[in-house]
Measured scan of single mutants.
Amino acid sequence: SEIVKHAEEALERGEFVRIEHNGRVIEIRNEEALEELRRWVEK
């Protein structure tokens, strides 16, 4: 997914991403959060 790709690229640069999706906000700061995002987006 485009969202996950964006988050992965930001993590590689040492940045973090805040994503709003279906009214929820998730902050991607590490691999664990990235995995959570993947599960969340796939639903």
Rank of each mutant, 00 (worst) to 15 (best):
S1Y: 14
S1W: 15
S1P: 11
S1I: 12
E2V: 10
E2Q: 13
E2M: 13
E2L: 13
E2G: 09
E2D: 14
I3C: 11
I3A: 07
I3F: 07
I3T: 05
V4A: 04
V4M: 11
K5I: 06
H6C: 14
H6E: 10
H6N: 09
E8R: 15
E8W: 12
E8M: 15
E8F: 11
E9Y: 08
E9Q: 13
E9D: 09
A10F: 06
A10D: 01
L11M: 06
L11G: 01
E12G: 14
R13N: 06
R13L: 05
R13V: 03
G14M: 05
G14T: 01
G14Q: 05
G14Y: 04
E15K: 07
E15L: 08
V17G: 03
R18Y: 09
R18W: 12
R18S: 10
E20C: 15
E20A: 08
E20Y: 15
E20Q: 09
H21W: 15
H21N: 05
H21I: 15
H21L: 15
H21S: 07
N22T: 04
N22R: 10
N22Y: 13
N22H: 13
G23E: 02
G23I: 00
G23P: 00
R24E: 07
R24A: 07
V25A: 05
V25I: 13
V25S: 05
V25Q: 05
V25F: 10
I26Q: 02
I26M: 10
I26W: 15
E27M: 11
E27Y: 14
I28L: 05
I28D: 00
I28F: 03
R29G: 07
R29W: 11
R29T: 13
N30Y: 04
N30K: 02
E31R: 15
E31M: 14
E31A: 15
E32F: 09
E32V: 08
A33S: 13
A33E: 14
L34Y: 01
L34W: 02
L34A: 01
L34D: 01
E35Q: 10
E35T: 07
E36G: 06
E36P: 01
L37T: 00
L37F: 10
L37Y: 07
R38I: 07
R38T: 03
R39L: 11
R39F: 08
R39P: 00
R39W: 09
R39E: 08
R39N: 10
W40F: 06
W40P: 00
W40A: 05
W40R: 04
E42Q: 11
K43N: 11
K43Y: 14
K43S: 12
K43E: 13
